[in-house]
Write a protein that binds this DNA or RNA. Structure first.
Length: 498
RNA sequence: GGUCCCAUCGUCUAGCGGCCUAGGACGUUGGCCUCUCACGCCGAAAACAGGGGUUCGAGUCCCCUUGGGACCGCCA
C-alpha cells in the first residue's frame, strides 16, 4: 500500500487510573482507541495506571475490566500495571540526568511555597525560577553529601523556540519553551511522577497513536520534550473533546452519580452495543446522516477526521420523570430492541427474566417458539431490556403489578365492569379455538349483546389482563397470554373494586 | 492570573467561499393510522454568540470582543 516505513503496526492503549468505576467518558476514550485499532488491524492495549496507591482499589480495577468486557471492547494486550514499571521510569530519569536533560533540585517545598506566594502578591505569573539548574557540580555534590533531599526536574530548553506538533484532531499546536516550567519528574523519595511514567510506558509499549481526552492536550508539549530528550520515536497524538454536563462541568461519578457509570446502563437494561452506538456519536460523526451502526459498519466508517473539536454535552437532567438518562441514548437502545433479530434479543430478555424470577427453563425448549413470538409482539414499545420483566411481567407470570393510572382510567371509571368482566370470562372460557379471530369475534359479540362501548371493554380487558393501559393490539395480547390466564384474570375479584 | 483549546436549533451534529430561503437525528409539538400506547408516515416551532475586516459573494477565511472548557502539584 504505502512504503514499508509506514507499514508499522498500529498500537494504541487505554490507560485509565482506577479511582472509581468505568464512567462513560472513559468508556468513550476506550471505544475510540478500540475502533482505531480495529480499523487499522492494530493492537489495543489496556494499561492500568495504578501508581496512586491510595486511590487505586482492586474493586475499581475489576469494575473497569467488567465494564470494558460488557461493552465488548476486548483488548489484545494487558492489562499491564503501571506500578510494575516503576523501575523503568526511574531508569529513564537517571538517563535524563546523565545526558544533561534533567537536574537535581534541592529547593524545599517551603521556600518554593514562599516564592509562589510572593509572586501571587505581586500579581506576576509563577514559574520555578531555576535556582538549582545552574548549580555547579561541586555545589550539587556538597548538598548531596550533606544529605539534602532533592527532586529531579526536567531541563526545558531555553530561548525563543517552541514545541510544535500536529494533533490529529486539533491540528497544529504550538507552545513556547518559555511558557513551560522545569517540571518535576522524580519526587524527593525517588518515585516517578505521572507525566514521566505515562510517557515511558507509552514508549516501552511502542504506542503509535495516543488517543486520549482533551485534558491531555496541555500535557503533550512536556511529554514531547521527554520523547525528544530520550530520542524516542514520537507517536501521533489525537485528543478527544470532553464530555460535559448541561452546566458544562466535567462529568464525574462524584457529582453526577450512577448515570455516568457504565455499570448503571447494564443494570438499567441497556444493550451494550446500543450504549456504544450512543457514545460514539458524542463528539464523532460521519459526513452522511447515518447514526445507527453495526459493529462492522462502525469499524468501517470510523476515522479520526470525524472527531469534533468542541466539547459535547451529555444531555441528562437530574430528576427527569420521563428520561433517566440522555434521551438519545434511550432512543438508540429502544431502536435496537425493536429492530434486532428476535433470536438475539431473547437471550438478553431471558437474563432479565432470570434476575426477577420470571424465567422458566421451558422458554428455552417447548415454549421457545411462544417466547420468540411474544417478545416480538411486545418489544416495540419498550426502551430497556428491564421493561420486559416489569411492564411485560403479565406475559410470563400471574404475579404482576397493576398500573395505578391504568386501573383508575380503564376500570374504576366504569363500575359496571365489575360484573361484565367475569361474565365475559365465562363466555371466553368455552369458545372453540383460542385465536385472534375467534377471541375478537366473541368479545365483539359480547359487546353488542350487552350494548356496551367497545373502547371501554377492550381497554378494561387490557388492563385487567396485562396490568397496563397500553400495549399491543388486545387480541394479540389475549392469544399470547393464553386462555387459562386470561379467563382467570377476567374472573378474579380485584381488590380495587372493594 | 498565565498558557492552550473551543464556539451552528434545548441536545448530538452536517456544512471545509456561491449548491444554505442553513440539512439530519434526539427531544418538544400538530395530524394520519387506531381498541390503548408505541411503531410508521406527513407537517410545525427551534440555531450560524457579537462586532469589524477580506471578497463580486462569508455559517464557511482573518482580527477583536464576549462566552465556555482544559492545563498550570513532590495527583493521576
Amino acid at each position: 500500500m504505502t512504503d514499508i516505513h509506514e507499514k508499522q503496526q498500529v498500537r494504541v492503549r487505554f490507560a485509565p487510573s482506577p479511582t472509581g468505576y468505568l464512567h462513560i467518558g472513559g468508556a468513550r476514550t476506550a471505544l475510540l482507541n478500540w475502533l482505531f485499532a480495529k480499523k487499522h488491524n492494530g493492537v489495543f492495549i489496556l494499561r492500568i495506571e495504578d501508581t496512586d496507591a491510595e486511590r487505586s482499589t482492586s474493586d475499581s480495577i475489576e469494575g473497569i475490566l467488567d465494564g470494558l468486557k460488557w461493552l465488548g471492547l476486548d483488548w489484545d494486550e494487558g492489562p499491564y500495571f503501571q506500578t510494575h514499571n516503576i523501575g523503568a521510569h526511574k531508569q529513564a530519569a537517571q538517563k535524563l540526568l546523565k545526558t544533561g536533560h534533567a537536574y537535581k533540585c534541592f529547593c524545599t517545598k517551603e521556600t518554593l511555597e514562599a516564592k509562589k506566594e510572593a509572586a501571587m502578591a505581586a500579581k506576576t505569573a509563577w514559574q520555578y525560577d531555576k535556582t538549582c539548574r545552574y548549580l555547579t557540580p561541586e555545589q550539587v555534590m556538597e548538598k548531596e553529601t550533606a544529605g539534602q533531599p532533592f527532586v529531579v526536574r526536567f531541563k526545558v530548553p531555553e530561548g525563543d523556540g517552541s514545541v510544535v506538533f500536529e494533533d490529529a484532531v486539533y491540528g497544529a499546536i504550538e507552545k513556547r519553551f518559555s511558557d513551560i516550567e522545569d517540571f518535576v519528574i522524580l519526587r524527593s523519595d525517588g518515585s516517578p511522577l505521572y507525566l514521566l511514567s505515562n510517557c515511558i510506558d507509552d514508549i516501552n509499549d511502542r504506542i503509535t497513536h495516543i488517543i486520549r481526552g482533551q485534558d491531555g492536550l496541555a500535557n503533550t508539549p512536556r511529554q514531547l520534550l521527554i520523547y525528544n530528550a530520550l530520542a524516542a520515536p514520537v507517536p501521533v497524538f489525537a485528543h478527544m473533546p470532553l464530555t460535559l454536563d448541561l452546566k458544562k462541568r466535567k462529568i464525574s461519578k462524584r457529582t453526577h452519580g450512577e448515570v455516568v457509570a457504565v455499570q448503571f446502563y447494564r443494570e438499567k437494561g441497556f444493550l451494550p452495543w446500543a450504549l456504544v452506538n450512543f457514545l460514539v456519536l458524542l463528539g464523532w460523526h460521519t459526513s452522511d446522516d447515518r447514526e445507527i451502526f453495526s459493529k462492522e459498519e462502525l469499524i468501517e466508517a470510523f476515522s479520526l477526521e470525524g472527531v469534533s473539536r468542541s466539547n459535547s454535552i451529555f444531555n441528562y437532567t437530574p430528576g427527569d420523570a420521563k428520561f433517566f438518562t440522555d434521551p438519545k441514548a434511550l432512543n438508540i437502545n429502544a431502536h435496537y430492541i425493536r429492530t434486532m433479530p428476535v433470536e438475539e434479543l431473547i437471550i438478553w430478555v431471558a437474563e432479565a427474566l432470570k434476575t426477577t424470577g420470571l424465567y422458566d427453563e421451558s422458554l428455552k425448549t417447548d415454549k421457545r417458539a411462544w417466547f420468540i413470538s411474544t417478545i416480538d409482539l411486545i418489544r416495540q414499545r419498550f426502551h430497556t431490556i428491564n421493561d420486559f420483566a416489569t411492564l411485560g411481567a403479565a406475559y410470563f407470570s400471574d404475579n404482576f403489578v397493576m398500573n395505578e393510572g391504568a386501573v383508575k382510567k380503564n376500570l374504576l371509571k366504569h363500575p359496571g365492569l365489575k360484573d361484565w368482566l367475569p361474565k365475559l370470562g365465562e363466555k371466553l372460557e368455552s369458545i372453540q379455538s383460542w385465536t385472534i379471530e375467534e377471541t375478537e369475534k366473541n368479545v365483539r359479540q359480547f359487546i353488542e349483546e350487552n350494548e356496551l362501548g367497545s373502547g371501554v371493554i377492550i381497554n378494561a380487558i387490557r388492563t385487567v389482563v396485562t396490568g397496563q393501559a397500553v400495549g399491543p393490539g388486545l387480541f394479540d395480547c389475549l392469544v399470547a397470554i393464553g386462555r387459562e390466564r386470561v379467563v382467570a384474570r377476567l374472573k378474579r375479584n380485584l381488590t380495587c373494586w372493594n
